[in-house]
Nucleic acid binder design. Structure first.
Lengths: 199, 199
DNA sequence: TTCAAAAAAGTACGATCGTGCTATTTTGCA
DNA sequence: TGCAAAATAGCACGATCGTACTTTTTTGAA
């Protein structure tokens, strides 16, 4: 791997660490250069513009999520098993201290949802893909007869994503560390057959 | 009302409109002054510091939420009726174009959750109060026997807030306008007795 | 109507922003 | 080992940031 690619990767990892607490929009070339031990212009040359840097950071975060959370569960059989593993990995990711300042992608969604441009486009595409993956796993589970009768995969995907967001909110702002457990109980309530989810 | 108070209110309304799309942290004294038809220094004198301005904006947004969404439902009897009205008002607020760029408070939670200071403190206090109100309404409904058996008010409050966040996400980033309907169906799924929420 | 007080504007400041352009260092191949 | 090329640093720029200090305009009570 070329030196350039190595340095670029180092910068992006540093950027993700900073963006986790301050947000991607608040990332500053100077601040990031200092944190990376580089000069402003040396770092700048890697990206050519601030928008390109922000886009690279978003894509790095997305690639990391896929590699660390989505990919690993694909070895499991389609259906409830795979879905459960994904949700567990996702929830665990929140608590793991992977990003102490919170998920940079979730935060970026709030920062860029009204800022047209390539960053917003990339976020939108990634979130849409993720939602589709989630919904497809739910459909697989439904096809296997592993869902309570009458459950709508689209609604469940919507609600499971809400559980993730609520857990994130509880941990990052409210400082509550039981959000992950509540999310798991919510998952059980939504997917457990029979008793309507005693929880 | 003194002139000062009137002007201050005008500024804060303008600030909320701007913050809706760009975020409270990205608010700039100069930008806000231009939008308000004032000079930078004239506007600045109203607050004394940028942090005080941000705090005032957060408090204005919180007061608006309470006045427009929480207060009105308090005339309804405690229990499921009041809870349903609150959720409906809350969901409706997302679609109403009240804030075209999304809820400034939700966005602020992501911006300030890792930035210690008075702004974060105010956000935390407001969100904690809101969560308590929600949970108390659920407890009232449980006391009335209006909840499916075995439901935990704390878990339901967690999940209902997740529905709101998911609806916000769907509308603001994904551009889907069925998020509100999904949130309503989720509400029904969680609170409807008997069939375990056929949806 | 007058006039002190309040509100707003004017001006200036150092700092930092993103981004050019040029010089220097470092790299990897001949 | 030498040397073009690649990577990084140095420096400068106009713009804008938040925030002081001073001056002008506006307000409301006597």
């Amino acid at each position: 791997m070329s030196k350039k690619a190595v340095t670029r990767e180092t910068i992006l990892q540093q950027a993700l660490a900073l963006a986790s607490s301050s947000g991607i929009a608040a990332l500053t070339i100077g601040e990031l250069a200092a944190a990376s031990g580089m000069s402003k212009s040396g770092l700048f040359a890697h990206f050519g513009s601030k928008e390109a840097l922000q886009l690279a950071v978003v894509e790095a975060a997305q690639a990391q999520f896929v590699a660390e959370t989505l990919q690993p569960v694909l070895v499991l059989p389609r259906g409830l098993a795979r879905l459960t593993a994904l949700f567990e990995a996702w929830v665990g990711r929140l608590a793991a201290g992977r990003y102490p300042g919170g998920c940079p992608l979730l935060a970026a969604c709030y920062e860029f949802d009204d800022q047209p441009g390539v960053v917003r486009d990339a976020l939108l595409a990634g979130q849409a893909r993720l939602r589709e993956s989630l919904q497809r796993m739910l459909q697989d589970a439904a096809d296997n007869g592993e869902l309570p009768p009458g459950r709508d995969p689209a609604l469940l995907a919507f609600m499971l994503f809400g559980l993730i967001q609520s857990a994130h909110h509880d941990r990052q702002l409210l400082g509550r560390n039981d959000g992950e457990q509540l999310a798991r109980r919510g998952f059980a309530l939504l997917l457990a057959p029979g008793d309507g989810g005693r929880a």
